[in-house]
Simulated scan of single mutants.
Amino acid sequence: MSLDDLNDDVTAAYSELDDELPVALDRETKNELAMLTAAFDTAETDEVVRRAIHQLFQTTVDRGTLDFHLRQGYDVTYDEYLSGMTYEEMTGADQYPQRDDERRYQL
């Protein structure tokens, strides 16, 4: 997979998300959401869920977990996704043909 595949998948996933996202919660998750809602003194759980998604995203970026998964699935990093080009494209390494080491020392 490639950077273009990642862009296509992100665009497709974004278009599938509605403003309302029904999520089934287990008992533990409900308890934790209730605790956070009370602690943050919010009337709606939507704000806590938004904060949780932002926190999870930031944590996966900071720890390199997002890059790990993107590299496995798409062979790109988050920085490459943000810039719209791979490191090879940024550095120009993909502009030169590969050297044929077998023929390199033949006369």
Rank of each mutant, 00 (worst) to 15 (best):
residue 30 K to I: 00
residue 19 D to W: 07
residue 96 Y to H: 04
residue 79 D to T: 12
residue 1 M to T: 11
residue 75 D to A: 11
residue 90 M to G: 01
residue 29 T to L: 15
residue 77 T to I: 15
residue 39 A to M: 04
residue 52 A to T: 14
residue 15 S to R: 05
residue 18 D to S: 03
residue 54 H to G: 11
residue 59 T to K: 10
residue 25 L to H: 06
residue 8 D to E: 10
residue 107 L to Y: 14
residue 77 T to P: 13
residue 61 V to C: 14
residue 70 L to E: 12
residue 15 S to T: 00
residue 4 D to G: 05
residue 71 R to A: 11
residue 21 L to Q: 07
residue 91 T to Y: 02
residue 52 A to Q: 08
residue 89 E to M: 00
residue 8 D to R: 15
residue 80 E to G: 10
residue 99 R to K: 02
residue 84 G to W: 02
residue 36 L to A: 11
residue 67 D to A: 00
residue 102 E to I: 03
residue 26 D to M: 00
residue 49 V to E: 03
residue 36 L to V: 05
residue 36 L to C: 02
residue 36 L to R: 09
residue 43 A to F: 07
residue 84 G to Q: 06
residue 43 A to W: 03
residue 48 V to I: 15
residue 41 D to M: 01
residue 2 S to I: 05
residue 83 S to D: 11
residue 55 Q to S: 10
residue 75 D to L: 05
residue 37 T to P: 01
residue 29 T to G: 04
residue 65 T to E: 11
residue 11 T to S: 15
residue 29 T to A: 15
residue 72 Q to R: 15
residue 94 D to N: 09
residue 75 D to V: 10
residue 52 A to N: 09
residue 15 S to H: 01
residue 56 L to N: 14
residue 24 A to H: 06
residue 96 Y to R: 07
residue 105 Y to N: 02
residue 91 T to N: 08
residue 59 T to W: 03
residue 1 M to C: 14
residue 89 E to P: 01
residue 70 L to D: 11
residue 39 A to H: 01
residue 98 Q to G: 05
residue 31 N to P: 01
residue 56 L to Q: 15
residue 37 T to F: 01
residue 22 P to N: 05
residue 57 F to A: 01
residue 19 D to L: 07
residue 7 N to V: 13
residue 83 S to F: 00
residue 18 D to A: 07
residue 75 D to T: 08
residue 52 A to F: 11
residue 24 A to T: 12
residue 29 T to F: 09
residue 86 T to A: 12
residue 37 T to D: 00
residue 46 D to N: 15
residue 87 Y to N: 00
residue 49 V to K: 04
residue 54 H to I: 07
residue 69 H to Y: 13
